[in-house]
């Protein structure tokens, strides 16, 4: 049993670290599927291979989002103040893009590994009146932390199970490379939208 676990963790690890274009090992492993396309750029956040689950309970890896720019926010659904506003900010960006919003992935990733199940995220999407094209992600603690480190988002869980966190909207290009970040709530979105518009045909 222990050996199986070990093997599994090595496989996982190889998955997470045989990152793409620099990988000279030809061993077939989890990443070869990913690499069927052209290799991701080194700076792509899609290089992380953790599996998330969306609000429809469908597992997905970030790399499956490749091909469209992404607007990413990190939130928790029980948040009383900041997260609904961050979500509203992202909705403004979504609305201002008009029909072009179809060419962009809008992602909300939850800090709250314990409470924000896919079902809860689906409810949150309903509460905040998000259109069906939004992707709300649940992940394990490690996956969410890893994403936060890559996006320079700070968060900490307090004793009540709520989170202190920074508020950042990140824009990734279609290959998952971080292109632009805006800190703070109710900020001016002109530059954010400008950055996105340049990425879509």
């Amino acid at each position: 049993m222990k050996n199986i676990l070990l093997l599994a963790s090595i496989a996982l690890l190889l998955g997470s670290c045989s990152d793409t274009n620099k990988n000279t090992d030809k061993k077939p492993d989890a990443t070869s599927v990913v690499q069927a396309q052209t290799a991701l750029p080194e700076a792509s956040i899609f290089n992380i291979t953790d599996t998330f689950t969306n609000q429809h309970k469908v597992p997905l890896q970030l790399t499956s989002l490749r091909g469209k720019p992404a607007v990413v926010g990190m939130i928790f659904s029980h948040c009383g103040y900041a997260c609904p506003r961050l979500t509203a900010d992202m909705k403004i960006i979504h609305d201002k893009l008009g029909p072009k919003a179809k060419e962009v992935n809008f992602l909300l990733v939850s800090f709250d590994v314990a409470r924000d199940t896919p079902a809860r995220l689906e409810a949150y999407a309903k509460e905040t009146e998000l259109t069906p094209d939004w992707i709300l992600l649940h992940g394990n603690e490690q996956a969410v932390r890893t994403l936060s480190v890559l996006l320079n988002v700070q968060y900490e869980k307090d004793a009540d199970g709520n989170f202190s966190h920074s508020n950042t909207i990140s824009v990734l290009d279609k290959d998952g490379v971080l292109a632009y970040q805006k800190e703070g709530l109710e900020a001016d979105h002109t530059e954010t939208i400008g950055t996105i518009e340049k990425m879509i045909p």
Partner: peptide
């Protein structure tokens, strides 16, 4: 884990 060797590591990481 060769992908974590100095010359091979992804600079993102």
């Amino acid at each position: 884990n060769p992908s974590w060797q100095r010359s091979k590591v992804n600079r993102l990481f």
